[in-house]
C-alpha cells in the first residue's frame, strides 16, 4: 500500500494484468511512446498523458502497439481481436474522438454477442479521457458516458479516485464484455492510498463515500470529489448527506440509489455530461417511477447548460458544476431559499 496517482494506478493495473495474462495487449495512439521519430528515443511518450509509459519496455512491441491516427481501424481491430482470442485494451485518447469510430463500438463490439445468439465473447476495454476543466474546448472536453450507457452490450465505468480506477480497470480487463473505461483528465495527478496487489471492484455496485440522513447526492467521476467537498461544508451547517458514487453507469446500481432516496427523501444528482438524456435525467426518471412516495421535495440536478464546452476559463467555470453549485442545490432541495449561483 502506498500513495499513488490516478495515472500510476491505471498504469499499475495494466502492468499487473499484462503480467498475469499474455492475451492482454495495449494499443492506441502513442501508447508505445511513439514510433518512427527521429530521436531514436524508445517509449518517449507513453500515451499523450504518459499513462502507458514503461509498458513497452516490459512487454515489447508485440503487446504494446502504437497505432496510426485512425480510430476506426484500430478500435475495430481491438473489437475483432477481442472476438478472436486476445484481451485488448485500446486507448481512444480523448473520448470526443469516438465520432471517428462509433460504428466499431456501437454496431460491432456491443452487438456481437446478442446478434450472434450468445456465441461471441468480446473482452475489450476502451480507455479514454473525458471531462472539462483544462480549457480543452468543445472537441476535447465532453463527458460522453451517457452516450455509451445508452447502448446495450456496453459496460461503462467512470472511476472517481485512484483506488477506484485500479480495481475497476482490472475488473474491466477480466470482464468478458466490451467495457468503456472513462478517465477524467483533470484527475490524473490525484493521489490516494492504493494497494500494491492486484484487486477488483465489481461492476454495478455503488460506493457510498459518506452516509447521511437528510439528503442523497448521486455524482459521477470527478463530481464525486466535488460532492464530497460540498457534503463536508453542508455537514458543518447541519445538513448531513449520503454521497453515492455509482462507479459504473452501465450496469447501474439502481437498488442502492432507490434505498438511499427511500432513507433520505431528497435527491441531488451531479452530472458533468450535457443535460439532455444524461445520467441525471435517467436517475430522475428512475426515482420518479419507483421512489416517488419517498420524495419530500423536487429532485435537483446540477449539470452544465445545453451548450458545447467553452474554451475561456471564465466560461468553462460557469459551465461546470462546482462545490458551490452543489451546496446551493442541496439547500434548495432542503427547502431553503438560496440565491442562484451563476
Amino acid at each position: 500500500m502506498s500513495k499513488k496517482s490516478f495515472r500510476q494506478a491505471i498504469n499499475e493495473a495494466l502492468r499487473q494484468e499484462m503480467r498475469r495474462d499474455p492475451r492482454v495487449i495495449v494499443m492506441g495512439e502513442d501508447v508505445a511512446g511513439g514510433h518512427g521519430g527521429t530521436s531514436g528515443t524508445v517509449d518517449a511518450w507513453g500515451g499523450v498523458l504518459g499513462v502507458t509509459k514503461g509498458l513497452l519496455t516490459e512487454f515489447g512491441e508485440d503487446r504494446v502497439l502504437d497505432t496510426p491516427i485512425t480510430e476506426a481501424s484500430y478500435i475495430g481491430a481491438a473489437a475483432g481481436a477481442a472476438a478472436t482470442g486476445l484481451r485488448p485494451v485500446a486507448e481512444l485518447m480523448f473520448v470526443d474522438f469516438v465520432g471517428c469510430c462509433l460504428d466499431q463500438i456501437m454496431n460491432q463490439a456491443a452487438k456481437f454477442r446478442y446478434m450472434f445468439g450468445g456465441k461471441a465473447r468480446t473482452p475489450l476495454v476502451i480507455r479514454a479521457m473525458f471531462g472539462a476543466g483544462f480549457n480543452a474546448a468543445a472537441q476535447h472536453s465532453q463527458a460522453l458516458y451517457p452516450l455509451f450507457t445508452h447502448i446495450p452490450g456496453l459496460k461503462v465505468v467512470v472511476p472517481s479516485s485512484p483506488y477506484e480506477a485500479k480495481g475497476l480497470l482490472i475488473e474491466a480487463i477480466r470482464d468478458d464484455d466490451p467495457v468503456i473505461f472513462l478517465e477524467h483528465k483533470v484527475m490524473y495527478d490525484d493521489e490516494e492510498e492504493v494497494p500494491d496487489e492486484a484487486y477488483t471492484i465489481p461492476f454495478g455496485e455503488a460506493n457510498l463515500t459518506r452516509e447521511g440522513d437528510d439528503l442523497t447526492i448521486v455524482a459521477f467521476g470527478r463530481m464525486v470529489k466535488l460532492a464530497n467537498e460540498a457534503a463536508d461544508r453542508l455537514e458543518r451547517q447541519g445538513i448531513s448527506c449520503t454521497v453515492i458514487d455509482p462507479r459504473t453507469t452501465s450496469p447501474l446500481d439502481t437498488d442502492t440509489i432507490l434505498d438511499c432516496v427511500a432513507d433520505t427523501g431528497r435527491l441531488v444528482i451531479v452530472d458533468e455530461s450535457s443535460p439532455r438524456c444524461n445520467m441525471a435525467a435517467d436517475i430522475s426518471a428512475l426515482v420518479a417511477e419507483y421512489a416517488f412516495d419517498a420524495l419530500k421535495g423536487p429532485i435537483r440536478r446540477v449539470m452544465p447548460p445545453h451548450t458545447p464546452v467553452p474554451f475561456a476559463s471564465v466560461l468553462e467555470n460557469l459551465y461546470l458544476p462546482s462545490v458551490e453549485k452543489i451546496e446551493a442545490a442541496v439547500k434548495a432541495a432542503m427547502g431553503h431559499r438560496v440565491p442562484e449561483i451563476a
Binding site: 494497494p195 492486484a198 484487486y199 477488483t200
Partner: peptide, 17 residues
C-alpha cells in the same frame, strides 16, 4: 455492522489471492 466495516472487508476480499 455498518457499510464501512463491510467495505473494508470487501476491499480485502477483492485483493487477488
Amino acid at each position: 455492522i455498518g457499510r464501512k466495516m463491510a467495505d473494508d472487508i470487501l476491499r480485502y476480499k477483492r485483493l487477488d489471492g
